[in-house]
Computed example of a mutant assay.
Amino acid sequence: MIKTRGYAALTPKTPLAPFDFERREPGATDVQIEILYCGICHTDLHQARDEWAATTYPVVPGHEIVGKVIKVGSEVKDFKVGDLAGVGCMVDSCGVCPDCQDHQEQFCNSMVFTYNSPDKHTGKMTYGGYANNVVVDQRFVLHISDKLDLAATAPLLCAGITTYGPLRHWNVKKGDKVGVVGLGGLGHMGVKFAHAFGAHVVLFTTSAGKAEDAKRLGADEVVISKNPDEMAQHTLSFDFILNTVAAPHDLDQYMTLLKRDGTMCLVGVPDSPHPSPNIANLIFKRRSLAGSLIGGVKETQEMLDFCAEHNITSEIETIAMKDVNEAFDRMLKSDVRYRFVIDMATL
């Protein structure tokens, strides 16, 4: 077994603290990665504080992992020692179900999350990327380009694919009018990707102070969603809206902005339901209200390659491992532009 240093929550009420544990030795198809950076996702906070009532303690969060390969199994062909590599939200799946066969492992009923998930290798729970190393089957390891800033690449493994996936699935292209609701960790990536796809990008926000930043990131227009007149100017004009807000809010104010056959996709999960939408807003213009998770391994690699080609990374603030609890508190206050990333050299 491999001795590993990390940070863990031991109970829902205690701060994350240093935690020593063991990883499995790499098997024939495994890749061992020295973790250099790990992004902080809001899911990490939910899990550490058991806000979804599904956490097994101790829990080591972290599913936006980038680093350097330090060991490979005898059957690993696509990675070698010294390669830059990443691990996202998944580390295993059944490999044989229709979802896995379609490269949509994120929907597999046997999908194993990077942390707080039953681990068939150890019989315990998986531990995540708030640690100095990780061992993962090669099927779930991703190539990272050396063209990109490594720390700023880490959030692409969750925030990046969460926004890239639906934009690709609904075929956002040059000339489309695309709305992005919210300019947070997800929203700022949605703006960057939609802009890179050639769409006319409109950011919806409740904060006028975000307009300048939104345009710097690629938005063509900024609409203050609390202003009915500004919203009304865009009625029946959008091909697609990516809604990244994870708090309950009125969906109808955005549904009416969609063209006939337009779609709004939700990627944020609120802690209580959204108010029920007016079904007439769907029926009379054949609009769709949809949702999307992350992406499969193949699509995530496609996204990383696209980012390398177009020099797209996340906007980050790098922190020391010891400051993770402060980062959690700041994240709750939306006091970050736009993602925290832990420098594991400080562990």
Results as ranks from 00 to 15, higher is better:
2 I>H: 02
3 K>C: 00
4 T>K: 06
6 G>M: 10
7 Y>F: 15
7 Y>K: 15
9 A>E: 03
15 P>S: 05
19 F>H: 14
21 F>I: 03
23 R>Q: 11
24 R>Y: 08
25 E>N: 09
26 P>C: 05
27 G>H: 12
30 D>T: 03
33 I>V: 13
37 Y>N: 04
43 T>G: 04
45 L>Q: 04
47 Q>D: 05
55 T>H: 06
55 T>C: 08
55 T>Y: 05
60 V>K: 07
65 I>P: 10
66 V>R: 02
79 F>Y: 07
81 V>G: 02
83 D>S: 11
87 V>G: 11
91 V>Q: 11
92 D>Y: 09
92 D>C: 00
95 G>M: 03
96 V>A: 13
98 P>W: 06
113 F>L: 14
114 T>W: 15
126 T>W: 10
126 T>R: 13
128 G>P: 09
128 G>C: 12
130 Y>I: 06
131 A>R: 10
133 N>F: 00
136 V>P: 12
139 R>W: 12
142 L>K: 05
142 L>E: 12
143 H>N: 14
146 D>W: 00
150 L>H: 03
152 A>H: 06
156 L>H: 03
156 L>I: 03
159 A>K: 02
162 T>F: 08
166 P>M: 06
169 H>F: 11
170 W>K: 08
175 G>S: 10
184 G>M: 08
186 L>E: 07
187 G>Q: 06
187 G>W: 02
193 F>T: 02
201 V>G: 05
203 L>S: 05
211 A>L: 10
213 D>Y: 14
220 D>I: 00
221 E>Y: 11
221 E>A: 15
222 V>W: 08
224 I>Y: 12
226 K>R: 13
232 A>P: 00
234 H>W: 14
234 H>Y: 14
235 T>F: 15
237 S>D: 07
238 F>C: 08
239 D>H: 04
240 F>A: 12
244 T>S: 15
245 V>Q: 01
246 A>M: 08
247 A>W: 04
247 A>M: 14
253 Q>P: 06
253 Q>K: 15
254 Y>F: 15
254 Y>M: 02
254 Y>E: 04
257 L>Q: 12
258 L>Y: 07
259 K>F: 13
261 D>H: 14
264 M>H: 04
264 M>R: 02
268 G>Y: 03
272 S>F: 08
272 S>D: 10
273 P>S: 09
284 F>P: 00
286 R>Y: 01
291 G>Q: 10
298 K>F: 08
303 M>A: 07
312 I>D: 11
315 E>V: 14
321 M>V: 03
322 K>T: 04
325 N>L: 05
326 E>A: 14
328 F>P: 01
337 R>N: 13
344 M>T: 09
